Simulated assay, not measured.
Amino acid sequence: MERERLFMHISKMEADMDLMYEDLQTLKELSVRLVEENVSLQMEKENYEQLLAKEASEKGASFKQNTLNNLYEEGFHVCSVHFGTHRHGEDCLFCQGFLQHRNN
């Protein structure tokens, strides 16, 4: 009787080890895919950063300056007095002076 229990226990451990090995293989495959995706995304990020740097140098204006100009054109204040609030279609001398100073 004792021998039968021992063999059943060994058989159960073998089955458990097989399942663990299958899980390990699945985890290994997923890890490889994640590493490959990470490398791909890193390369894409580097290419994008190079493209942004190239565009900024070609235009001659900084990204920050273009952003401020765009904000003002979209109707928002860029001056320190009312920064980020809507201009409601009105011009702001502070904003215009600030942008003119930054462009020179």
Rank of each mutant, 00 (worst) to 15 (best):
E37R: 07
N47D: 05
C92D: 01
L71R: 04
E55F: 11
L52A: 09
S40E: 12
L51T: 10
D23A: 01
E29S: 11
R5N: 12
K45F: 01
E49G: 00
C95P: 05
S31Q: 13
D16T: 13
K59V: 03
F98K: 08
K12H: 10
S40M: 08
V81N: 12
E73G: 01
K12Q: 14
E55A: 15
E55K: 14
C95M: 06
L24H: 07
A53Y: 00
L6Q: 12
E22A: 12
S62C: 08
F63C: 09
H88W: 05
K28R: 09
Y21V: 15
R33I: 12
I10W: 07
Y72D: 06
E58Y: 02
S57M: 03
S57D: 04
H88N: 11
T67R: 11
S57R: 04
K12W: 07
E36A: 15
G89N: 01
R33A: 12
A15F: 09
L68V: 00
V78W: 02
K28F: 05
L6H: 11
F76P: 00
R33H: 13
E22N: 07
Q42T: 11
G75V: 03
S57F: 00
N69A: 14
M20Q: 13
T67N: 08
E74F: 04
N70R: 14
R3Y: 08
H86P: 01
R5G: 06
S40R: 15
L51F: 09
S80I: 08
V81A: 11
F63A: 12
M43F: 10
M1T: 13
S80C: 09
R3K: 14
V32T: 14
R87T: 07
M8I: 08
E29D: 13
Y48G: 07
T85C: 05
G84L: 04
T85S: 08
